[in-house]
Simulated scan of single mutants.
Amino acid sequence: MAEAERIIGTPDSEEERPEEPGREGDTAESRAADPAAEGDPAAEGDAGAGRGRRRIAVLLTVAAVAYALDLATKMLVVAELEGRQAIPVIGEWLRFEAVRNPGAAFGMGEALTVVFTVIAATVIVVIARIARKLYSLPWAVALGLLLGGAFGNLTDRVFRSPGVFRGEVVDFIAPKGFAVFNLADSAIVCGGILIVLLSFRGLDPDGTVHRN
């Protein structure tokens, strides 16, 4: 019987089975070639840095789009609407009307033009600092909206009359019974609302979630 078993052969146990190519003998080499498989901190850091760069790219893209739309609409308003009658959009409820605003968003604080210019510049610096640890996509969108809006109105403050840092912002969206504003103001408000919602949900710019 033992002789028959020897001739026919029985399956080897896992301990006795010789190593097959690409299995145990190759595992160590593959792990050495791929540090991320062992949870290597350097590999994980590279992955995190790549994700951070993608989020910054989203932030800059959103900011660029918001800024470009704001700049283009203001140029169109100055060229085609300034000094002319308002254009009804939705009856008397919404009009396009060219207005020069020396104050903050929605016409507030007309005597503090320089102060609001400094605030806008400060917001841009703060966003740049936050972006270094940005790993959250919703935060990237929110900060992009803030950045694009801040740059839009800051451009007016710097380059429009009556002078540098005292320039008047071009507003043109005029709802009935509400202050006249522009796309930069809209981007700032939308970005601010999104940040409040993200903070309320406990989501931080670095992607971590905390609960109070």
Rank of each mutant, 00 (worst) to 15 (best):
E19F: 06
P175V: 10
G144K: 08
A98G: 07
D185Y: 02
A68L: 15
G103A: 11
K74I: 05
E38T: 13
G91C: 12
E16D: 13
L81F: 08
V115H: 06
W139A: 14
G91T: 07
A174V: 11
V115L: 15
G83Y: 08
R95P: 01
A121C: 12
F181D: 03
D70I: 00
A140I: 02
N101S: 04
V114M: 11
K176F: 12
F200Q: 01
D40K: 03
A174L: 07
D46C: 00
R166W: 09
S136D: 06
A120K: 07
R6I: 06
D171H: 02
E97H: 14
I90H: 09
R54H: 05
V78C: 00
L197C: 13
A66Q: 00
D26H: 12
D12P: 00
A37G: 08
A66L: 02
G39R: 08
T73M: 05
E38H: 08
A2C: 06
E20T: 09
R23D: 15
I127V: 15
R53S: 11
G22E: 07
F165R: 00
G50E: 11
L59F: 11
G25I: 11
N182V: 07
A4Q: 14
P162H: 02
G39I: 06
A121Y: 05
G202R: 08
R157G: 01
L59V: 09
A86G: 08
R17K: 13
T208D: 14
G91D: 10
A43W: 00
G39H: 06
E82H: 03
L145N: 08
V77E: 00
R95K: 14
A187H: 13
R31V: 08
V115K: 06
N182A: 05
P88V: 10
V209M: 09
G148S: 10
I87T: 12
T73P: 01
F172M: 15
G22N: 10
V58K: 13
F178K: 04
A120C: 08
F181M: 02
K74Y: 03
G50A: 12
L137M: 15
I127C: 04
L147K: 09
V123Q: 04
E24T: 10
A187N: 07
E110W: 03
E38F: 03
T10G: 00
G148Q: 06
R55M: 13
V118L: 15
L203F: 02
L71D: 04
Q85E: 15
K176Q: 12
A72I: 04
A150N: 04
A64V: 10
D156C: 03
I8T: 11
V118Y: 13
E15N: 05
D156T: 00
E20W: 06
P41A: 12
R51V: 03
R129A: 09
V126R: 02
G52P: 01
R55P: 00
R129Y: 05
G207A: 12
L134A: 14
R6E: 14
E24W: 09
G25W: 01
A47D: 07
V209I: 15
L143S: 01
A47C: 00
R23H: 14
